[in-house]
Structures are given as C-alpha cells and as structure tokens.
C-alpha cells in the first residue's frame, strides 16, 4: 500500500520571504508614487494629458510597471493570507485559485494600460 507523503510547502516559504522583500521594495516605490501624485501634484491637476505626458517617458512607465507588479502581488497575497485565516483546510485550494484569478485580471488590466498607453478620445 502506498504511503501518503506530505512534502513541505516550499512555495509558502517563498511567498513568506517575498512578502518581506517586495514590502521593503514597495516603500520607495509606493511612497514615491503617493508623494508625487497625491501630495505634490494633487488629483485636481491629473487628467488624460497629464498621463500621456508622464507616460511619454519610458522611465515612468517602467516605474509604474514595477509598482503594479510588486504592489499587486504583495496585496493579493496579503488578502489570501487574511482569507486563509478564516477558511477551513479543504477550501484552501479554492482560495488560492480565486486569488490567482484576481491577480491575473488586475495584472492584465494594468499591463494593457501601461503597454497600450493613452488613446486620445
């Protein structure tokens, strides 16, 4: 009879570590973004032209892409961790799938905007 072996979940350990690495990286990325857009520029001065001028610089698109990648992965994994605290063991798989779907949809939306850029109406 075959024995059932549960191997250690290395991917959870990887996720745990990357929550710390991405978190430390998000301090300059997210704080810089919030400081510039919310505090210094302000929402009253942001419009379609502002976005197209900003994204004319490849550097800002790369900055925004890094922010999207790290913030979304960090945020969705954080949400997954919170939800898993309230979920029974047999539903873990579904929580993981839902988190992945959430991440994928938001990632595609954000990446489409960043790569496609501003289309003039």
């Amino acid at each position: 009879m075959a024995r059932v072996i549960h191997p250690p979940k290395y991917h959870e350990m990887t996720a745990w570590k990357w929550m710390r690495y991405s978190g430390l990286l998000l301090i300059p990325l997210a704080w810089g973004h919030v400081l510039i857009q919310d505090v210094l520029v302000g929402v009253d001065r942001i419009d379609l032209d502002y976005v197209s001028v900003r994204w004319a610089y490849l550097g800002w698109r790369i900055y925004d892409f890094l922010l999207l990648v790290f913030a979304l992965a960090h945020g969705v994994n954080g949400l997954r961790q919170v939800v898993l605290d309230f979920i029974s063991k047999k539903n873990i798989r579904w929580v993981n799938r839902a988190a992945f779907a959430y991440w994928l949809i938001m990632m595609l939306l954000g990446a489409a905007a960043l790569i496609g850029g501003v289309r003039q109406p």
Binding site: L48, V51, S52, L68, L72, M106, L109, G110, A112, A113, G116, G117, V118, R119, Q120, P121
Partner: peptide
C-alpha cells in the same frame, strides 16, 4: 488599476 485602465480601453 481599473480607473487607470480606462485611458486605454475607454479614454
């Protein structure tokens, strides 16, 4: 992310 994606999908 949704509001920013409108610059491409529904400017």
């Amino acid at each position: 992310v949704v509001d920013t994606s409108t610059v491409f999908f529904f400017p």
